[in-house]
Write a protein that binds this DNA or RNA. Sequence first.
DNA 1: TGCGCCGATGTAAACGTTTTCACGCCGACC
DNA 2: GGTCGGCGTGAAAACGTTTACATCGGCGCA
Lengths: 338, 338
Amino acid sequence: MAVTIKDVARLAQVSVATVSRVLNASAPVRDDTRARVLAITRDLRFSPNGAARTLKRRQASALGVVLPDLYGEFFSELLRGIDLEAQNAGHALLVSSSHHDARGVSVAVRAMRGRVDGLLVMAPEVSAKSLAGALPDGLPTVTLNTAPTQGACASVTVDNVGGARAMTHHLASLGHRRIAFLCGPSRNADAAARLRGYRAAMRTAGLPVDDTLVLHGDFTEQGGWQAARLLPETSRRRPTALFAANDAMAVGALLALHEAGMNIPGDMSVVGFDDIPIARYVTPSLTTVRVAIDVLGARAAALLFRVLATPVRGGDAHREVVPAELVVRHSCGPPPSA
Amino acid sequence: MAVTIKDVARLAQVSVATVSRVLNASAPVRDDTRARVLAITRDLRFSPNGAARTLKRRQASALGVVLPDLYGEFFSELLRGIDLEAQNAGHALLVSSSHHDARGVSVAVRAMRGRVDGLLVMAPEVSAKSLAGALPDGLPTVTLNTAPTQGACASVTVDNVGGARAMTHHLASLGHRRIAFLCGPSRNADAAARLRGYRAAMRTAGLPVDDTLVLHGDFTEQGGWQAARLLPETSRRRPTALFAANDAMAVGALLALHEAGMNIPGDMSVVGFDDIPIARYVTPSLTTVRVAIDVLGARAAALLFRVLATPVRGGDAHREVVPAELVVRHSCGPPPSA
DNA sequence: TGCGCCGATGTAAACGTTTTCACGCCGACC
DNA sequence: GGTCGGCGTGAAAACGTTTACATCGGCGCA
């Protein structure tokens, strides 16, 4: 029913081989023959069947992108960065989201076999071990922001530790001594890394890491609101600064503290992580850590292409880290006692 | 090199046909045979080659998504809605963006032939005619928010006219008589429809549509800022309300008017369109028109599946409109004179 | 007992490309 | 003038599946 290379060949009175050669410029063809073939191709609006081409060439010109979710600006930016790089290389993107557990990732990945040349996998909530089990054997893969795999799998991560450390240091140097940290989901690798950075910086600054200073959150605005709501009622040992593990929670916290009649940053400093666009618009504007998410995506795609280009699948497990940079706005200041 | 169905067949001591039957449950197979095949499949971590499967089955279990861009929350939400619906139907998404002109759309679409079952195309800046030329013959397509095609092509659009009309009516009923409209890009179909809605409502309210009331913008925050900057200096015929064709521009305008020392909404009302998340967080929070973008995406995907399911390609050109709803916040009020 | 049917399996032909191999032709070289 | 090599082309074999068709044993039924 659909027009195939055979139809073109028949009408142009050449063999299918010649048509293929014309379309791919893969071998010399006489000028008049080429012209005839191209004319028919245009007339029939022929375009080669991607599946057949992929099958024969053993290369799909597509990258698989497996994401835990598609909600919010983070993924939008990530995808944009990836797309930019993929488009440059003439590759399409086969995306699949809502895969939170290893099983989900596994089925998504299996469905992609034979239709993509490589995989970009982001699964911050899946342990390294089960992820390794879910990934296929033959397919080059780059993991994004995932707990480090022992397997020989390239990866790109954000410098969560460095960013969190820089932020904590900043707060400490403003004079804060009791700095609370609002965690993300417990199994999330990003969240864990940020907590580590906070802890390390607190130690370096000679500040105690009291367990009551570490609050539990879930990366949602709602969660941030709930966690912060209880804060004003804390006794005199109340923290003077709140470091939320992501901006969404920081925004929620801002809201809660505001509702409780607190002055930010006068009574308490509140800071976040990610620098989502909203961070600039809340009042007071949010001090945070900027992650160039599109760069993260682009770097991951670029790395994947490099892996694809190297003929030998070296087990060197290339690892890249994209920097995270402190952005100081108006939601933090010196502690009230100072 | 990669493991194929033949390897499985050989090790399980059956024919490839039987393996296929087991994996697809397409014909009865004896229990012990099935068990043997499944065991080997697991052992070898076999998963069928998608390209081969697609080629033979003549169905890809994938949808093509062609977008003008990937920037910002709009596309993120759109994609999420589409993904939701596609995932339900067991389909993957092949996305391709940065196609602003008909040529770009054309190459993107051609690259997808044979790898997708249907197409979701969003190209608000491409005229109906050239879009029709770019779309392939055999591939079912649903256009999103695109100027109505005369071709028999299903489409889903946002009720831009209705939304703009509702907003204009709201402003008029607050007492505004000079309501300025900040346009989007000139060839953008959404922008054009919103302008039409504004004009219609002005007429209905018996208000004059002065040409000096219609400002040119480009849907960016920057553009909104520039357009609004000149506003305070306007003579006594200055508008008392500014209706921006999208939220990004409204936010820019808010900023510019603020910088010029104007009080919003005391001195001037500012409203937008889209209800992007930021709209809630700017001060004053932005009155706007809410478009459930994820619903738009989901509806489009659902419609495409329905088209795919109908065996006869009827030329009925199903058309769906998703409603747009007025959201009143704090950036608008009665005009200063009132 | 013979006929027909069904259930379980194998064989092989597609699907639409790309690519290897072979072939005929022409000009060049010894 | 025969051999050699490159250029343009066609025939056909892949690529990894699914599936129509064939085969074969066993069972029910007349």
